[in-house]
Amino acid sequence: MEKNFTLRLRFYTVAEKSLDTILKEFEVLKSEIEPDYKVKILDNHIWLSLGILKREKYSPHLHLHLEPMEDGNTAINGLYGPDPVLWTFFIFLHFLVGVIFFIASISAYTKVKLHQNYTIEIIIIALMVFLWFLLYYIARKNRRKGIPEMNQLQTIMERIIN
């Protein structure tokens, strides 16, 4: 089933309901599905995620941006994303790996020009490249683990917009 994953991380759809109707229906849904799912509504934005008891570190969030259309329908821009805390941590790790890679590269270049031994710098550079690939692999693995939960969030969204 996961091999045939048809959801996209970003999507656009049109609901044949007014913006106010969709917001009211999500308010009603909010009380029905908590604590298993968390629904946050702010202006024309809705965030869906798993409840605190069901959430894993790889659990996705669904952000919906609702825009009223002239014909009375509602345009919905959706975005699946990771937990903001986990995403921030991954960005920090990428930044840290990049800084260490940059410093080791400068140090290696300097030692090459000064005809000194630069073996340690080459090892550090290789280790940072390995860590970049490892972070990429971990992110892809977490994304695959979150596919069933993405399907759950998609089902909840479709209950309202269809």
Rank of each mutant, 00 (worst) to 15 (best):
Q152I: 05
L23T: 02
Y137T: 08
L96H: 02
Q154M: 10
P35G: 03
P84S: 11
I122P: 04
Q116Y: 10
I106Q: 06
V39R: 07
E32M: 12
L93Q: 09
D20N: 09
M157E: 09
V129C: 09
L23Q: 00
A139Y: 13
N151Y: 14
P148N: 12
K145C: 04
F92S: 14
R55F: 05
G146H: 03
Q116T: 07
K38C: 08
H65C: 06
F90N: 06
R55V: 10
F130I: 05
F130K: 01
H63I: 10
H61P: 05
H65I: 12
E56M: 10
F101S: 00
Q116N: 10
A126P: 00
E32I: 07
L79G: 11
F95I: 03
L42C: 04
G51E: 10
H45E: 03
R144I: 14
Y58F: 15
Y137S: 11
S18C: 02
I122F: 13
H65Y: 11
I103V: 09
Q152M: 10
T119P: 06
S105D: 01
P35I: 00
E121K: 07
A15Q: 08
P68E: 04
P82Q: 01
G81M: 09
Y136A: 03
E25Y: 02
N117L: 13
P60A: 07
F26D: 03
E34S: 08
Q154D: 14
Y137I: 11
K113C: 08
D20M: 05
V39I: 15
K30N: 06
G78T: 08
N142H: 13
N73I: 03
Y58D: 14
S18E: 02
D43C: 13
Y136F: 04
F102M: 08
E32S: 13
E67D: 13
L96I: 04
L50D: 12
I147Y: 15
I46N: 01
E25K: 07
E67P: 04
T74I: 01
I22C: 02
R140L: 15
T110H: 13
Q154V: 05
K113I: 11
L62A: 10
K54H: 00
D83I: 15
L48T: 08
K111M: 05
